[in-house]
Simulated assay, not measured.
Amino acid sequence: MKQALVVIDMQEIFFNYPQKYLLHNIEQVVENINELITQAHDKQIPVIFIQHTSQDKQHLMSEGNEDWKLHKNLLVSPTDKVIQKSIFDSFYQTELLDYLKSNEIEQLIFAGAQTEFCLDTTIRAALSLGYQHNLLYKGTHSTINGAVLQASDIINHHEAMWHNRFLTVIDGEIKL
């Protein structure tokens, strides 16, 4: 089954404002995502970075702003695909689905931020679009503390909800 790694919204905004946008367990998450990226590159699995891009030029996440850029510590290769999106769903009005189809991708491996927003929406959309056998490794996604739930509770809740419904959550060694 031909795979692709999809890394969602791992952008500088989450690293530039730790008082407001601090992602839970972020150093370990970046390390784990880089492990996925390294293995994907080694196995010639396409790596796709999804980059949230606000249409409001004054927004921190508008194209070209420092906060909009992919995180500097990610192991991005010039051969990786970068796709911009403007809402939670990485498929909505983007080239993602066409890219996956043209490369005959059958299975997606998800990672990134934020768990309950862009990651969740994209995981659900992928299933609806026919991607039935997707994967997510524990420790490769994160979010910030919410008004009602702490980040760790949001992560645990979503992993329990996703597992064996929307994708397979793998708890263990990261091995593609």
Rank of each mutant, 00 (worst) to 15 (best):
F91D: 07
A4E: 01
Q39A: 03
L96Q: 08
Q58G: 05
I45S: 02
N103I: 15
T140L: 04
I45T: 00
H163I: 04
S152L: 11
T143A: 01
K138Q: 15
N103V: 05
Y137L: 03
K175N: 11
R124L: 02
Q44W: 10
T122K: 02
K101Y: 15
D42G: 15
L127A: 14
S62K: 04
T53L: 13
S102W: 01
K101C: 11
F49M: 08
I26Q: 15
K43D: 10
L149V: 01
M10L: 04
K43N: 14
K57A: 15
D89P: 11
G64E: 03
F49H: 13
Q28H: 11
R124A: 06
H163A: 07
F49Y: 06
T53G: 10
G172C: 04
M10I: 04
F49Q: 00
I87E: 04
A40T: 06
K72R: 09
P18G: 09
I8K: 08
H133K: 06
I45Q: 03
T168H: 14
V169F: 06
L70E: 02
M61A: 09
I83P: 13
S142T: 06
D56W: 11
Q84T: 10
E12S: 06
E35I: 07
T79S: 11
F15T: 09
Q28F: 02
M10V: 13
H158E: 12
I170V: 07
Q19P: 14
D89M: 07
Q114N: 12
Q55F: 15
H158I: 14
T53A: 08
V76L: 13
G172Y: 02
L100N: 01
T38H: 11
Q107S: 11
A40W: 08
L70F: 00
Y131D: 13
K69S: 12
D56Q: 04
F15V: 07
F15H: 00
S102M: 13
N164D: 12
V47E: 06
K43A: 09
Q93S: 12
L176Y: 04
A160R: 15
M1F: 07
Q19N: 13
W68F: 06
Y137K: 03
I50F: 00
W162C: 02
N25L: 03
C118D: 08
T38Q: 11
T38K: 14
T115M: 05
D67N: 04
W68K: 02
A113G: 05
P46S: 06
K72N: 07
D67P: 10
L22W: 01
F110D: 01
M10D: 10
E31N: 05
A151Y: 02
Q55Y: 14
V76P: 04
W68A: 02
N134Q: 05
D9R: 02
D153P: 03
K2I: 01
E63K: 15
L97F: 09
N34Y: 00
I50C: 12
N103D: 01
I123S: 05
Y99N: 05
V148L: 15
